[in-house]
Simulated assay, not measured.
Amino acid sequence: MSNRLIQYAFICLLALGLGIAVVWLPEQLKPQTPENQLLLTESGCSVKESTCSATLDNQSISVAVNPQAIRSTIPLTFTIQLDGIDADAVNLSLEGVDMFMGLNQTQLSPVQDKPGFWRGVTEIAICTTGEMMWRARVIAQQDQQQLEAHFDFSAK
Rank of each mutant, 00 (worst) to 15 (best):
Q142G: 04
I6F: 04
P34F: 09
H150P: 00
A125V: 13
A54N: 07
V65P: 01
T106H: 02
T41C: 05
V121M: 12
A136C: 01
P110Y: 07
W24Y: 08
A15C: 10
A54L: 04
Q7I: 00
M101S: 00
C45G: 10
I74S: 12
Q112L: 09
E95K: 15
V23G: 04
Q81T: 14
V90K: 07
L103R: 12
L18D: 07
Q59V: 06
F10Q: 00
G17K: 03
L14W: 11
V121A: 13
T41Y: 01
P110L: 11
T129P: 11
Y8V: 08
L103E: 15
V63F: 04
V23F: 11
I74V: 15
L76C: 06
D143N: 13
I124G: 11
I139K: 04
A9T: 08
L103I: 11
A9M: 01
Q28H: 03
S72T: 09
L39C: 08
H150F: 13
L147S: 02
G130K: 09
S154D: 08
V111D: 11
V138W: 03
I126Q: 15
D113I: 03
G130F: 13
M1F: 14
P75A: 10
E42G: 14
I61G: 06
F153Y: 14
N104R: 07
P115Q: 06
G84V: 09
Q28D: 01
D83T: 14
G116Y: 09
A89L: 11
M132P: 02
D83S: 13
Q146I: 05
I61R: 04
I124A: 06
E123N: 10
M1D: 03
G120T: 12
Q145R: 11
P75Q: 13
A140C: 04
A89Q: 14
L56N: 10
C52H: 01
P31D: 07
C127F: 03
V47W: 05
K48R: 14
Q68L: 05
V22Q: 08
G19H: 03
S93Y: 07
M133V: 06
S46D: 14
F153Q: 08
L25D: 08
V97Q: 10
C12D: 00
N3L: 09
A54H: 02
N66Y: 02
I126W: 09
D88T: 14
D83W: 09
T122K: 06
I126A: 10
